[in-house]
C-alpha cells in the first residue's frame, strides 16, 4: 500500500510537463494504472510529473470532421458526452464497462492507452474507430495512426518525454454505427475478450468494417482477414462463422488461470459475432 519514494512535480501546462520530463520520470494522468502498480511496488519511478491538473487536455471537442477527446478526459466524461454518443456510440458503451464508477471518475483515456494493458478496453475501441493519437514532445506535435500505436505487450509508439494530448475520433459512417461487446474477468473487470466493431451498412451488408479486439492477444489488434472477408457480405451467422475461423491468426493468444488460450479464442469468436450481428 506504500509506494517507494519519488519526487512529485505538478505541471500546469503541457509545455511545463514536457519540460519536467526526464528519462527517469513518468507521467501521472488519472493515476488508475500507475498508482496501483506503485502501491504494490511492482513499479517505481524517480519523478512523477502530474498532468491531471491541466484543463486544456481534459475536454471533448466536437469538430467538423472528428471529435477530439483530450488525453486527460476521464472515462466518465466520455461516457456522458453527447457528441461521441452520435459520432461513435461504442465509445460510451465501452466507457461504461471500464472498472467502476470511481475508476471512471478518475481514469483517463490517455493514461489508459499509454499504459497499453493488453486487456484494457480503449485499445480495441480506438483501433476500430480508426483514431489518431495526438502526441506532444519538446519538438512539437505529431499524430500517430492508431494502427501504428500499439506495438506490443504494454508497448506503444509513445516515446520517452512525450505526452498524449488528444485522440481524434473521425466522424465516419462506420463510427456512427458502432458497438462494444465485452466479456469481463469478474474480479478485475478487465476484458477477457472485448470486441469493438463498426461498419457503415448497406442494408445488412457492410460497405466498410473495422474490428478491434482486446484481451485475446499480447496487444489489441484488428483481425484484418475477418474484416476483409466480411466487407460486402451480408452479416448473418453463416457468413460470420465462416469468416471467424482465422480470427487469431498471426497473434499470440494469452492464457491465465481464468481463461485458457483455447477458451479465449473461442470467446473472441463468440463476442465478435455478437458485436457484428448488432451492426445490422
Amino acid at each position: 500500500m506504500i509506494p517507494l519514494s519519488f519526487n512529485y512535480k505538478k505541471a500546469n501546462s503541457v509545455d511545463e510537463a514536457l519540460s519536467m520530463l526526464t528519462e527517469d520520470s513518468k507521467v501521472l494522468g488519472g493515476g488508475h494504472s500507475l498508482i496501483p502498480a506503485l502501491k504494490l511496488r511492482l513499479n517505481s519511478v524517480e519523478t512523477l510529473v502530474d498532468i491531471s491538473k491541466i484543463d486544456a487536455i481534459k475536454g471533448i471537442n466536437d469538430n467538423e470532421k472528428s471529435v477530439t477527446v483530450g488525453g486527460g478526459a476521464t472515462h466518465a466524461s466520455i461516457a456522458a458526452n453527447s457528441a461521441l454518443a452520435s459520432a461513435a456510440p461504442m465509445m460510451a458503451e465501452a466507457a461504461h464497462t471500464i472498472g467502476d464508477i470511481q475508476v471512471r471518475n478518475m481514469g483517463t483515456i490517455g493514461g489508459s492507452i499509454a499504459h497499453a494493458d493488453p486487456a484494457a478496453d480503449w485499445p480495441a475501441v480506438l483501433l476500430a474507430a480508426d483514431a489518431n493519437v495526438v502526441i506532444k514532445n519538446k519538438d512539437g506535435q505529431r499524430e500517430v495512426d492508431i494502427d501504428q500505436f500499439f506495438t506490443g505487450f504494454y508497448e506503444t509508439a509513445l516515446a520517452e518525454g512525450e505526452i498524449i494530448t488528444a485522440i481524434r475520433i473521425p466522424k465516419t459512417g462506420f463510427n456512427s454505427n458502432s458497438v462494444y461487446e465485452k466479456f469481463k474477468q469478474p474480479a478485475s473487470r478487465f476484458a477477457i475478450v472485448g470486441v469493438a466493431a463498426c461498419g457503415e451498412m448497406d442494408g445488412k451488408t457492410p460497405k466498410s468494417l473495422r474490428i478491434g479486439i482486446t484481451g485475446l492477444a499480447e496487444r489489441a489488434f484488428r483481425p484484418m482477414e475477418v474484416e476483409k472477408a466480411l466487407i460486402g457480405k451480408e452479416l448473418n451467422e453463416a457468413n460470420i462463422d465462416a469468416a471467424l475461423g482465422n480470427i487469431a491468426d498471426g497473434v499470440s493468444v494469452m492464457a491465465d488461470h481464468y481463461a485458457s488460450e483455447k477458451y479465449r479464442t473461442h470467446l473472441a469468436k463468440v463476442y465478435t459475432k455478437r458485436a457484428l450481428l448488432r451492426l445490422v
Partner: peptide
C-alpha cells in the same frame, strides 16, 4: 498462491 489479490480472487459483487 497465484490469485492472491482482488484483481484475481473474485468475490461476488
Amino acid at each position: 498462491l497465484i490469485n492472491g489479490s482482488y484483481m484475481d480472487y473474485c468475490m461476488p459483487r
